[in-house]
Write a protein that binds this DNA or RNA. Structure first.
Lengths: 339, 339
DNA sequence: TTGTAAGCGTTATCAT
DNA sequence: ATGATAACGCTTACAA
């Protein structure tokens, strides 16, 4: 394990020159630069991270906190997100520091101990205290999602409002009027946006939303099953359902199959699809019609934004919204005639 | 953002004393210790991580690399594992550094740049090159799994052999003789161990394993569906199946439901269950009989071992094997009579 | 183009 | 019990 001093001595150069050569400064002679790099490789020199961090004030790492240990429900979306994020960072040899959530204290700790250069913040709530605090501390961060339409911080989000508007329209164009919405809890901004999209189409067509068909809860397989059970038992199953997560849809499908209800014929489904690699909506027994936006891409984009941010990009350059793609497959069909 | 020098000046003490007070050295007067701590809190002093790392040579972080970006299949097990791991580390304010995998180079980089104090290594293969290299570098690591029965490095594993022996016995005791094994690929040691457990029970009972009923592939929902389809189409469906993953079982179940085959009556299933929070085997339409061993606990245990290791525990203290629990639920029943 | 030397903010050693 | 002061290994003015 050789250090800069030793490498410099070995080369009969000063530490400064060697350092500059390794960091590709333009002022250093290209011949010596080559010589330095070769020697460094030959001797297996690797800069000590802590020393570099101390000297530059940059850590070369970004922080993220593992969401929701509170309800013990680990979100399967998170791995895909992490995969995208780390792959974008790896391009520049940047790392990701992962911490278990102890609430807002974790964010504070990560920011104040200068373990990381910036944070990524997932699943923002309305008026999220983490955002307020980070903003007050003037610590850089990027939000996956938004707290309102046009916030004054860096974020990456999908157009949830538009996605669910499109999905609702599609169903209505197929003749559906009774459409259940299986959504996430209403404290998450994305769920609110989706609900608004859904409602607005009803409004535009002079129809009224039936609140008995709107569900806001944790987006688990179990809940999908439970909600459809409830609807069937109460004899209130609508002709179509709109799901905020493929997991919910999975559970709903299981219930439909148990009841002998054929998806795409007896009932139509549009689901949001985060493109999870472990849950492919195209491989469902009845391939799903979805609003699709891979969460892995979101991770990747946020990784790139993190890099841009550390290079000094302004807030306005760090605000992105992408559209979800409406993919029509076999789970949607014309509304059955009223019996 | 105050530093040690400023804090020391503010207290009319030397940096050394303040540092010692903050690090709870016994040699420092308890009155001044209290005074220092109070001032530190009042002024919001936080030690600079890089500086401390440089001085101590310890990073206070452990590394892990996100598996298998190669096949784009993100393992949902990984989040649960991470949750356990980070929660154990958080107790001591330790962090986890996550890197995207660029093959073995990633491990090398993490080790040589001294970004972390130790690595955790997942999904070991037979004669894994990562292990060989880390061992040669003398860099500390803990393996989740094993490369052989009694290796000479730190590891945490479950007794896969015993688990699948138990499962196979259970099925045979119920009268099953044709038992399919839906396993992971045979380059993973856990899959080999499970296969051995399965085979040995056949051997002990004087029966012979039918190789047409043994499948070794990626443990995805799709593969579970596909394999059962294949069996049904070839009219070779056995009376029982043994699955290495709840995901495989999920897919198998979907195929059974499509075919109107009733699990627990027409066919028996025993699945391994890693206790994923997003996939609860007790909530399947037919609650599953499983060999259970929560992967979250594995993460937690490895987190504790990482801490022990950095405190100087010996290799022999860092080798743990736990048993999976056989939980009998409704997916297993007596073998149907031969038609 | 290269070298000298001063940080960066801690902890550790050695006196006192 | 406390204080000087020297590491730790790098980057970066400033000089040459």
């Amino acid at each position: 394990m050789i250090n800069l001093k030793q490498l410099a001595k070995h080369l009969n150069l000063s530490q400064a020159t060697v350092s500059r050569a390794l960091n590709n400064y333009s002022t250093v002679n290209s011949a010596t630069k080559a010589r330095v790099i070769e020697a460094a490789n030959a001797l297996g020199y690797r800069a000590n991270t802590s020393a570099r961090q101390l000297a530059t004030g940059k850590t070369g790492a970004f922080g993220i906190v593992l969401p929701a240990a509170d309800n013990l429900l680990m979100d399967p979306h998170f791995v895909d997100f992490l995969a995208g994020l780390t792959s974008a960072l790896a391009v520049n040899d940047l790392d990701l520091v992962l911490s278990a959530s102890d609430g807002i204290a974790t964010y504070r700790r990560l920011a104040t101990t200068r373990k990381v250069d910036a944070l990524v913040l997932s699943a923002p709530k309305l008026d999220d205290p983490r955002i307020r605090e980070l903003l007050a501390m003037n610590f850089p961060f990027i939000v996956h999602g938004r707290t309102d339409r046009k916030p004054d911080y860096a974020y990456f989000d999908i157009d949830n409002y538009k996605a669910f508007k499109d999905a609702t329209r599609l169903l209505m164009d197929l003749g559906h009027q009774e459409i259940a919405l299986l959504n996430g809890t209403q404290d998450s901004v994305f769920a609110i946006d989706r609900y608004r999209g859904y409602c607005d189409v009803f409004g535009q067509r002079g129809l009224v939303v039936n609140p008995e068909l709107v569900f806001a809860d944790a987006m688990t397989e179990e809940n999908g099953y439970r909600i459809i059970s409830q609807l069937i038992d109460a004899n209130k199953l609508p002709t179509a359902i709109l799901c905020s997560s493929a997991l919910l849809t999975l559970g709903a499908n299981r219930r439909f199959r148990d009841a002998g209800i054929v998806v795409g014929r007896d009932v139509s489904i549009v689901s949001h699809d985060d493109g999870l690699s472990s849950l492919k909506t195209e491989n469902f027994s009845v391939p799903l019609t979805v609003t699709r936006s891979p969460i892995r891409i979101a991770g990747q984009e946020i990784g790139k934004m993190l890099i841009e941010q550390s290079r000094g990009a302004s807030i306005s350059e760090l605000q992105k919204v992408v559209q979800a793609e409406l993919v029509v497959r076999a789970s949607t069909g014309a509304a059955p005639r009223k019996k």
